[in-house]
Design a protein around this nucleic acid. Sequence first.
DNA 1: TTGTAGGCGTTATCAA
DNA 2: TTGATAACGCCTACAA
Lengths: 342, 342
Amino acid sequence: MNEFAKPTLDDVARAAGVSTATVSRCLNAPDRVIATTRERVMQAIETLGYTPDFGGRALASRRTNTVGAIIPTMDNAIFARGLQSFQEALSRFGKTLLVASSGYSPAREREQMEVMASRGVDGLLLIGSARPEASVEFLRRRGIPFLGAWNLGGEDGYFVGFDNRAAAAGLTEKVLAKGHRRLAMIAGITEMNDRAADRMEGVRAAAERAGIPADELPVIEAAYTFDEGAKAFGNLMALAPRPTAVLCGNDVLAVGAMQKARELGLRVPEDVSITGFDDIDLAGVVDPKLTTVRVPHNRMGEAAAEMLIRLINKEQVERRIEIPTAIVERGTLGPPTPDPAT
Amino acid sequence: MNEFAKPTLDDVARAAGVSTATVSRCLNAPDRVIATTRERVMQAIETLGYTPDFGGRALASRRTNTVGAIIPTMDNAIFARGLQSFQEALSRFGKTLLVASSGYSPAREREQMEVMASRGVDGLLLIGSARPEASVEFLRRRGIPFLGAWNLGGEDGYFVGFDNRAAAAGLTEKVLAKGHRRLAMIAGITEMNDRAADRMEGVRAAAERAGIPADELPVIEAAYTFDEGAKAFGNLMALAPRPTAVLCGNDVLAVGAMQKARELGLRVPEDVSITGFDDIDLAGVVDPKLTTVRVPHNRMGEAAAEMLIRLINKEQVERRIEIPTAIVERGTLGPPTPDPAT
DNA sequence: TTGTAGGCGTTATCAA
DNA sequence: TTGATAACGCCTACAA
């Protein structure tokens, strides 16, 4: 007998002088055990250092108390922040978080889904709604509850997020209200990324409503890095006529753009206005501070956790939970300078 | 009989006309099954859509192919980045990542250890080495391999990280070489945070070597936020004589300090030099750009994964893997302005 | 309120 | 090479 061997329910039961069933009940339904025996059992658990075995528990109860999350990457601050809150909330419900990343690839996401499924996750957090129908079908067939976060999705499915399109449109209207007519956009890569696509559409729609057709609104898609944002901005500034305001699909691109502007000797916002999206830490630190759209990523994570738990427990759930966003006006948006040519 | 019921080994065995043992072998040791029967079995697995049950497998094999990580918070970019690389590397080895956070609290870390242990993780990633001996003992008793990352630890245990003390000392020497004599430091909270403590010691040691005793080097500890950094900086600037260089325990504090400097009308680096640590994105974006210490967090995550896998497989492992750091000289460190009083 | 006992799906040890 | 069969640790009717 190894004194270090992992204690089992049996050991605890013996030590406390009860049956394994009672010990199990103490753990899973304490109120179904009388206080005095419960105390004795807890005491035994304590001294033996017992912790329930996951395999045994999963096997017998058909639940794992594990929730999975497949996100593009934790390297993106917005997902890191959301995931942190998601994990904390989950933890309060006694659930543990399994993390995988897709690197924005639907194929990789699907692989990870299978991993999650074989791990028996009770539920799954996904980002957005842009994925092959087959992936969705896979989860349905497996009976794994899941939801999309960071946007509001389409016809069916559960979502907790915000209306990227409307938020982007709102910001665009603000830009237009300042008097800008020559807009441009640096969008995130929209392929299989509904958040980026929605933001682009939002900008276009608002512009169109103001009488600016799509072909007068140059859009460049750029990967999520400062450098790509800078490069795109450089290209935009080479256009004639030069845009007076550049809307960016996220703060990282916007900051990249700002750096390029400085490099080009363009003052922000005097020579050109720049806006971002997300309101990550960066936004409040650059000079001038970035005008952007605030998204409460931590609230999103929390709400997602609560919704998913409900889904898992088969409780009543509304299909969408909308997280409010807000435009944060700071220093990078100003009125356009009158065209020197006119 | 529900056609959607999850198929079991038994179902496959029956369909293929073999025993469950053979099916199991097909999955775990294919070469111990003759090709023809193996084919038949695989066929059955395919058509039934069988995937092994995690609980059953964990219970019988005593292994989970799951690795845990307990980090302070993903909200800190350095951990988010490291964790992302850690997860990717793990994934290549067929392991899945379970994530928990401690919020820098040893008690909470311990709780999460127990969660991880009861989940049967094959190995565990921890941050640093500052924790109660009881926590370490717990893992030892459970026979769970673990390692500390982001520093190099003490007498025993496995580590992949860097020498925070030496790196901080190196940067301090650089500052001294510029001619500064009146240094000050804004350190991270050092309580139960060896990274912060080591950095503080490094600064102090280097200063002392240069003939500046500890009591002439004011140090304020501040939580990981811009505001706390700003507040601490304000207090430091109120000192007489005023420090000419402020070394910060991390980039977030440094950026907070920079913001306060601007608020106070102090130019950086003309009126006061400021340095950071970590080289997160922020550092390259503020104006002027921050002089700091670059830490390759992603390499750390990768190296940690490889080391942990080795530990799990009981392969030969060296006790410490050191990740090189580098001082990045940018714009916030300059020579001190001659004292107007002298 | 507590105990008995069967079963969850898989692996692993023996034999055959 | 394959097949019985006994664990693995826990949960949960059902009984007492």
